[in-house]
Computed example of a mutant assay.
Amino acid sequence: MYNSTVARLTYRGLLGRRRALILFLLPALLLLIAVAVRQLTGVDDQIAADVLGGFALATMVPLIGVIAGTGAIGPEIDDGSIVYLLAKPVKRPTIIVTKLLVAIGVTVVFSAVPTLIAGFILNGNSQNVAVAYALAAAVASVAYSAVFLLLGTVTRHAVVAGLVYALVWESLFGSLIEGARTLSVQQWALALAQKTADGGLVTSDVGLVPAVVLLSVVTALATWYAGQKLRVLKLAGEE
């Protein structure tokens, strides 16, 4: 279920000049904010949690997930170059799983790792805040990558759809409407962070067990359905 050639091509596409600039920009902004906040406020556990929760997990992680998840396959489908890959003797579910693993790896590196570093800058991991939010970012990266990879297979407007989900549903509705919070990847990831952090600094509207179940189900279903969509994608001359 993993093909090194597909992985290499996907990495090249994701880390091209334009996407790489955006991928580096968001973590750099987080680290800049962390340094500035630390200089202005000193060590403050609550402020550290607010910065990591409000910017890193709520904004940076889903945006990087959109870039990596949709970029892993969407452009190839849009420009038609996917036909060259599909013509190779590689099973289509293998293509999806490989691209998903690449998208997860890129999202984790550019979101969870900077979140951990920012947490250490802000409060030196006091109350396990840095580790908790880094864990949440890593877990959310998996689900976001699967969901946005699926969007890349079902619509030519995957980036727009992903941004609407990330910024409108997750950030806006998820923060204002109580019912929407329970259907939020961010809240599911926060359930694991809440279990890790000390002092009640991290809270979630979803229990740990439901969060783990929902994260697993959404990731599995999105991956499976993306594989099904790619399986029925017809090459010219196949019919």
Score class of each variant (00 low, 15 high):
5 T>G: 11
6 V>R: 02
6 V>C: 08
6 V>E: 07
7 A>R: 07
8 R>Q: 11
10 T>E: 11
11 Y>W: 14
11 Y>L: 15
12 R>W: 10
12 R>Q: 14
13 G>Y: 09
13 G>D: 01
14 L>E: 05
15 L>C: 08
15 L>A: 10
16 G>Y: 08
17 R>P: 02
17 R>T: 15
18 R>M: 11
19 R>P: 07
20 A>M: 12
20 A>L: 15
24 F>C: 15
24 F>T: 06
26 L>Y: 00
26 L>K: 05
26 L>N: 01
28 A>L: 13
28 A>Y: 04
28 A>N: 03
30 L>V: 08
31 L>W: 10
31 L>P: 06
32 L>K: 06
33 I>V: 13
40 L>E: 12
40 L>F: 07
40 L>V: 13
41 T>D: 03
43 V>E: 09
43 V>C: 01
46 Q>W: 06
48 A>P: 00
49 A>I: 01
49 A>Q: 08
49 A>F: 06
51 V>K: 00
52 L>D: 07
52 L>M: 03
55 F>S: 03
55 F>T: 05
56 A>G: 10
57 L>Y: 00
60 M>W: 06
61 V>W: 03
61 V>G: 07
62 P>N: 12
62 P>I: 04
63 L>W: 01
67 I>H: 00
68 A>N: 02
69 G>L: 00
72 A>C: 14
72 A>E: 10
73 I>T: 08
74 G>T: 10
76 E>S: 13
76 E>I: 03
77 I>E: 05
77 I>Y: 05
78 D>Y: 09
78 D>I: 12
78 D>T: 10
